[in-house]
Design a protein around this nucleic acid. Sequence first.
DNA 1: TCCTTATATTTAAATATCTGCATATATTTT
DNA 2: AAAATATATGCAGATATTTAAATATAAGGA
Lengths: 124, 124
Amino acid sequence: MKDFIKLCKALSDETRLRILNILLERECCVCEVMQALDISQTRASRNLTVLYEAGFLRRRKDGLWSLYSIDRDGMNEYLADLVQVVDKALQGNKRLEQDRERLRKAVRIGPSCAEKMRREKTNA
Amino acid sequence: MKDFIKLCKALSDETRLRILNILLERECCVCEVMQALDISQTRASRNLTVLYEAGFLRRRKDGLWSLYSIDRDGMNEYLADLVQVVDKALQGNKRLEQDRERLRKAVRIGPSCAEKMRREKTNA
DNA sequence: TCCTTATATTTAAATATCTGCATATATTTT
DNA sequence: AAAATATATGCAGATATTTAAATATAAGGA
């Protein structure tokens, strides 16, 4: 039951649902998540970790980058069902479409550069 | 997305999962929930309300009693799927079996009587 | 080895959640 | 109408969650 609660808590947050939404598209590094959702490095990293520890994500290292993806194969029991439900529940949301749109333009430029771009855009 | 988060939050609590577990057996009034889970009236009522407002439950009045049940028919979209997943995830839990066992012995005696019985049992 | 850089983590403050106690509300009975 | 009773709710304290800012860690390159 504890594990199931952990899963539900992981899903009880808008930022994390937005992250799952873009990871349903493709594997991402932290700074791509930052760009797609337009959020800070801390926030991206922390929430990715929560999803990872709940069991939703796979993490692999590529040099300096941490790459996260939805761990469809490593999922046990009800976990895959849960992802299915999430996928269905998130259909047709405007904000999530916007995130996916930004994901298409995202690049592996690193968080410092991404943060700078973000600041410039905000001030513009 | 807000609604979906509300659902997930409703599921992110042990007391509420225990409540769903017994409601999967049958419709209950508040004081039966108290007896089955061995919890206070406030706690039972509060958590039933959370589940109700999230959309999991149906509520009907019978005199003084509020009767709650899982609203399988009134459920839309992914809600039924979610209950399915919950049901699967809760299988084989010792504590939940214990709750169901106590539910079998529970009666509609009202919270004040239930609370008294509870206090006596604790002091015994 | 030192520097740069992508990510993780610690800390602190703001906010949300959960529970018990006391009380309010609503329905039935007298 | 008053009393009894099942449930709901306002409030306060304890605990948990979320975030940004600063700092730590770890990998690659000069």
